[in-house]
């Protein structure tokens, strides 16, 4: 296998990349109001996590991290399915997926 990548690219570069992606996703969750885009931003955050896990795993030569990524992907798919179902349900009632319209519950 080509080991050159591990020698020439520092792992910190991957960590920075994942952190930036994670932060972008976080910003999106806080900034956007369309529920479906929120869901996408959460997926983006999860992908940042995946990348980080994979990087650690490859650099440390440990397979556990990659399996963790596998499980994250699998479960995220299930979560996305349920989330989209909730979204569709919401859309049926309000004709919108804007979360800022959801303020019926106030104390």
């Amino acid at each position: 296998m080509d080991n050159s990548i591990f020698n020439s690219v520092e792992i910190s570069q991957y960590i920075y990349l994942s952190c930036v992606l994670f932060a972008i996703g976080l910003f999106g969750v806080l900034y956007r109001r369309n529920a479906i885009v929120l869901l996408m931003c959460i997926e983006l955050m999860l992908n940042a996590v995946n990348l980080l896990f994979a990087a650690f795993s490859s650099y440390m030569g440990d397979n556990n991290g990659q399996l963790f990524v596998f499980f994250i992907m699998v479960v995220a798919a299930a979560e996305a399915a349920v989330g989209l179902a909730i979204l569709v349900m919401m859309y049926r009632n309000t004709r919108s997926t804007d979360v800022s319209l959801m303020d019926n519950l106030k104390g």
Partner: peptide, 9 residues
């Protein structure tokens, strides 16, 4: 720590 094993991944 870096520890590259052949069959990882």
């Amino acid at each position: 720590y870096h520890n590259t094993v052949e069959d990882v991944g």
